[in-house]
Amino acid sequence: MAQMGARSVAESAKRLLTGPLRLLDDLGRQAEFYGKSIAWTPKAVKSYKTEQVRLIAEVGMSSGALAVIGGSSVITLFITLFAGVTGGVQTFDALQNLQLEALGGFASAIINPRLLTPIVAGAALAATVGSGFTAQLGAMRVSEEIDALEVIGVRSLPYLVTTRLVAGMITIIPIFAMAMCGAWIGWKLTQVDFFGLSEGTYDHYMDTFMQWQDVLYSFAQAVGIAVVVILIHTYYGYTASGGPAGVGRAVGKAVRTSLIAVLAVELAISMALYADSDAFRISG
């Protein structure tokens, strides 16, 4: 009994000591995977054109059950539309408390491109495109299709991962444009049509405070998010193990990691772009 206790103490001490090392090991593996998949880009674009085009179509439209309800672009549009309605409802009430409900257009011009669309569209991208990739690659890994690819002399990393990365970076632009339109339409619909704010007032404040740089910065965030989400999701799919149940766990782990990464990347990019003291101007 005492011996067993001593052994388990030694074991847990060993686990505790090797924990940080294992974490470091895992981070190193991930970094290697990300570096390699980015470095393969020229080769993948040049050699796998057919696969590339097929993946671009698949990222935009999705496959399987999700395609039936419209694919990733329509799902993203739907989610940001509802997020825009929520934002409209919540800010209208807050501004009404201060007797400032006329400034609804101002809130929309600032909040939508800077906060709402990047956060919500990033989460939607991770949920639709990203976890779809983890499920696909994970299934390929556990049914040994990836090993089969290597055996017939196809390098699996550029063929499977880099092509998906490029497809994601291309399709994020139209998906994100739809998402941003969705947020603005939802917001305006709520405040003008439901709460009866005058349309002229709304448009006036929206046009006055809308800055084209914000939209551009927002797209910079979107591309950053797309790269990070797709790299994380393909990594967890590519390294899945433990049979069908392992694929399910890998998808869950990938979503958790990428949601955190989406917000961290957004914070980093928006602090880099907006921390400049005159990033926000009330006039001129």
């Binding site: 399987g64 799902i75 989610i79 949920a127 983890t134 499920a135 299934a139 069908p244 694929v247 399910g248």
Partner: peptide
Amino acid sequence: AGPRGVGNAVNETVVYTFLALFP
């Protein structure tokens, strides 16, 4: 059944949960 089955199920769970929770 099969590896693709569980992966797709988890993928669709995230999407449907987001689709349901915002409305």
